[in-house]
Design a protein around this nucleic acid. Structure first.
Lengths: 201, 201
DNA sequence: GTCTATATTGTGATAGAC
DNA sequence: GTCTATCACAATATAGAC
């Protein structure tokens, strides 16, 4: 196994475990086992556990940058953006069910990471606010604080995933298939809900 | 210091630290320091760290039970319930800013705790769903999956607190006062948003 | 680069005096 | 009930052979 492959192997193994169990609960031994190598190699490549975690996190943040760009940037109409964001977010999660909670927690723990990602993705957080403002001015949507609308969109999209265990247990008989169906239904429902809420009648 | 006071002192100290830092990051030594006593006393009163945590959690869950009862039980109209829930939830958090994330995480980690609290509070999770169903039947509100509406209500209310660091940093110049103002504005805004979304025009 | 062995530290928990 | 001293173990990190 040469240098580059081992390094990537470690990163992938650590990523898998960090996402599921977080920094504290993931042990170096676990990561080594997952990668099929010795504990010492982890330190050889990444010096400390914290630095390994930082490396993993950086990779994950780079992955989600395009989604942020699609949502926050560009001049697609806001209704279309909402539909696409909900769709993209849900699809992303189907590929990696534990990712959203992990990313959300990390960005919450250190919002500067989010700032950095947005800058690196060439995204201005204010752009979408100005877009909403413009759509209000033009009479397309009701007068609402653009920041509040933005939070509402994010809340309706992200919350069900953050609260997945609760939602499954209380409302859906703890059934994974029912949850997926529930989420699938939201792809159309969330957009419709928001549009109904802010369209001028 | 007699038995009862010391026990309460430990519980309060542990509560404070567990809420802010969680189970893993809170050390027994920290709790002892916070309480101004020796580490051994913690074990004397609660045997293990896990049992101490359980005791703290039980106390907190008992605290939030009344709010759940108000929201999920009773036959107040759903619009009124929404307004009151948003108001109650926000006020609760103003008293203890770190509580919602902690409680949310714990209930998510082990939803059986939520089930238990609801039972102990005499609350049937299905009651509010039937209430929504009835209001749809009677033509008061649009046809929407009651479970989806319920999640939307919870999402719009709870999410901003879960995402507080992000919201503050990205939208509100990291200003605590602006955040409080933002939340205050939501007391009316969330209800209005939902009502607009589901009222038949 | 990769391994085995070991050092070091932190932390939950117990023993035993008072 | 409360304290000091200590144990036992787990986990990160390093030393050094190959």
């Amino acid at each position: 196994m040469n240098t580059i492959n081992t390094e990537l192997l470690i990163l992938e193994s650590a990523k898998k475990l960090f996402i599921i169990n977080g920094l504290e609960k993931t042990k170096m031994q676990q990561i080594a086992d997952e990668a099929g190598i010795n504990k010492s190699l982890l330190h050889y490549y990444f010096r400390t556990k914290d630095k390994l975690f930082e490396a993993v996190l950086a990779g994950i943040l780079a992955e989600i940058a395009p989604m942020l760009k699609t949502f926050f940037g560009g001049d697609t109409p806001i209704f279309t953006k909402i539909e696409r964001f909900v769709e993209t977010y849900i699809n992303l999660i189907n590929k990696n069910p534990f990712l959203p909670e992990f990313v959300f927690n990390e960005l919450n723990r250190n919002p500067e990471n989010l700032v950095r990602v947005m800058i690196s993705a060439g995204v201005d957080p204010d752009a979408i606010l100005q877009q909403i403002e413009a759509e209000i001015e033009s009479g397309k949507i009701k007068n609402i604080n653009p920041k509040q609308l933005l939070i509402n969109i994010l809340a309706l999209t992200i919350f069900p995933f953050l609260a997945k265990p609760i939602v499954k247990r209380i409302l859906l008989e703890n059934d994974e298939a029912l949850f997926n169906q529930f989420i699938e239904e939201r792809k159309a429902l969330v957009s419709e809900f928001i549009i109904n809420a802010i369209t001028i009648k």
